[in-house]
Design a protein around this nucleic acid. Structure first.
Lengths: 250, 250
DNA sequence: GAGTGGTCTAGACCACCCA
DNA sequence: GGGTGGTCTAGACCACTCC
């Protein structure tokens, strides 16, 4: 049970002290130099231990000031009814629905383009990966109270979206799903595939992700009957988001 | 747009080369020494770049052999019907249901104990955090084909579980949920709260998590009508798992 | 034994914050 | 200006693998 790697033991010791309340929420930890002499190790070793605690979400670092015990994280929650027809007919898209529930101010910047569908999108939309795979791409950066919290890239088949409101930045009240339904694609169900991974540097920068924090990735497919009409790649900071799903027992 | 930090640029360059197929899946990357001289940096800097790619899931390291482009990850999938009554009456618990779908060999080790409920469990189960918070705890380590893939800790109210089969290691066919239903708690729905974070060292060791890979955490609450009868803290490697949810459009 | 990845040390430099 | 966190270098050592 004894760990040989020094930084692991240092991290464990500090974690215990934080749990025990030696350093309370928001308080500063001892500085790098102090920890070096206390544990008798080099700067890098202390840094590794702190990096671990940062990755766990226990510690926050502020350049030039110090390391701080983090306060409890703010929770933005995704409920089930965000995808309900009721929300759409009330004029709210999914993101707006979250904003209304969470009482924060939403903002979205959109870039529209035509592009090639990635492989997984091809298989969902039923496009031959070797053939024509042009799709309409809606690339969005979403903010809550001025901070970027979510990246979303939607892929729509050309024969569905070309020349419609879906190729404009503002899709209007109720969002893209409302427009799809007006066009006769009555949405029947959605599939969400949830996974987690570490962010690419660009994502980390955009989402202002603290060191070591993973992102949650959701691939949502919107179905109108048997037909998949949209694939949405959603990336969000795991620090800001928790996903809530309700499953009925039959 | 120019990044100043060397390891970020090195990681980006290597990522491009992997995407372009210079190094195909399963192939070995250049060794540390080679990369050091190619980019003209110190060992640690190369290591940081590789660590980033490992965290993204692109690269796998094998001690004493080298760094390898990872193959596509094996997908263990959680479907919606894993929580269905049909699966339970067929004698399969949720984990067994996954195993049957994924064609791998399940194994579970269980430790039962009485303990204090953590704060979030108290609030779900309606226990006063200041008062009596003893619960029955089922601590499980789950394996697929001999590898640990999931940790799960269930909390059950004492007045529900005490002295029943739920306090035994083997809950019998259909698992704990089947027993709850036999006891008159007809399960109506489940809530799953999904989040992601970096693993604690102990979790990383148990789950054999590659460096930097986050874990997915699911808190599942089982309801019999209005009453929450079980809270389950589930931790799994994001490398092994993808969660699939289906949402009906009303 | 030679090569590999992984970690630790010691010392340096930078950007940032605060007095 | 002195302290802070963050990173890079150079060199060392260990465990592991392959020959």
């Amino acid at each position: 049970m004894v760990q040989m790697r020094p930084w692991v033991e240092i991290a464990e010791e500090l974690r215990r002290e934080i749990d025990r309340g030696v350093y309370g929420p928001g308080e500063r930890l001892p500085s790098g130099s102090e920890l070096m002499s206390r544990f008798g190790v080099a700067r890098q070793t202390v840094q590794n231990a702190i990096d671990q605690l940062r990755a766990e979400g226990l510690v926050l670092s502020v350049a030039g000031r110090g390391w701080f015990v983090s306060e409890r994280k703010p929770i933005v929650r995704l409920a089930r009814n965000r995808l309900s027809k009721a929300e759409r007919t009330a004029g709210r898209g999914t993101f707006m629905s979250d904003a209304a529930a969470g009482k924060w101010k939403p903002a979205v910047t959109v870039k529209i383009r035509r592009g090639q569908a990635p492989e997984d999108v091809c298989s969902y939309l039923g496009l031959d990966p070797g053939g024509e795979r042009e799709v309409v791409v809606r690339d969005r950066v979403m903010c809550a109270d001025g901070e970027v919290v979510q990246l979303a890239v939607s892929y729509l088949p050309v024969d569905v979206a070309a020349g419609t409101r879906l190729e404009e930045a503002d899709t209007g009240p109720g969002g893209a799903y409302a427009r799809l339904e007006e066009m006769g694609f009555e949405l029947t169900h959605f599939t969400e595939v949830v996974s987690a991974r570490s962010p690419r540097p660009r994502e980390a920068e955009l989402l202002q992700i603290p060191f070591g924090f993973p992102v949650i990735q959701v691939i949502r497919v919107a179905f109108a009957g048997d037909r998949a009409v949209e694939v949405n790649h959603i990336t969000m900071s795991s620090e800001r988001y928790q996903l809530v799903y309700q499953i009925d027992a039959d």
